[in-house]
């Protein structure tokens, strides 16, 4: 799944270059496409967290899910505030759609599980998901972002998600 999405991001980057060469001079997706993907990625983790809170009785899992909810809502709110300030609207794109359909599949996989099996699968998915998002934000989005404030917000998001990645690693150990 991760490979597929990375390919998607790369394809998007290429498509963007050919579609609006005049606007994009850095060979990456536009800021408003990145904003849409990042916002979507945050919402996906929020939905995983809601699922965990609905299914799991494990205090470590619930605590982790609560933190994902708080932080991803906060980062997404900060993104919306910045977009409002810039009077810009995020632009839907193929990568966002791929992310959404992959996440739907994953949620369907997770929601038939319960107990320790759910906890383990949720923890492993959180780790893989944050690893993928962090790699994409760090290697593709931050270098491609043009607006300085937007670049800085992506930096804050990356810092946050890296802490989540570390936290997810601990959760994987605990739910083994």
């Amino acid at each position: 799944m991760i490979k597929q999405i990375l390919v998607g991001v790369a394809a998007l980057a290429t498509a963007t270059v050919s579609a609006c060469a005049s606007e994009v001079d850095d060979g990456g997706p536009s800021d408003m496409q990145i904003a849409h993907i990042a916002y979507t990625a945050g919402n996906i983790d929020i939905r995983y967290a809601h699922l965990a809170l609905a299914i799991s009785d494990n205090p470590d899992v619930r605590e982790f899910a609560e933190t994902m909810l708080r932080d991803h809502v906060a980062v997404n709110d900060a993104a919306l505030a910045l977009l409002a300030k810039l009077e810009a609207a995020p632009e839907d794109n193929e990568t966002s759609q791929v992310l959404l359909s992959q996440a739907l599949e994953k949620r369907n996989e997770l929601k038939v599980l319960d107990g320790a099996a759910f906890d383990k699968a949720y923890a492993e998915n959180e780790l893989a998901y944050h690893q993928f998002v962090n790699k994409t934000v760090e290697e593709a989005f931050i270098p491609a972002a043009d607006n300085q404030e937007f670049k800085e917000l992506l930096g804050v998001a990356l810092q946050t998600f890296k802490v989540h990645e570390g936290h997810a690693e601990m959760l994987v150990e605990k739910t083994k």
Partner: peptide, 12 residues
């Protein structure tokens, strides 16, 4: 000496 933490973020 008093150690303090953030209960949400391990390592903080």
């Amino acid at each position: 000496e008093m150690n303090f933490i953030c209960t949400y973020h391990p390592g903080m």
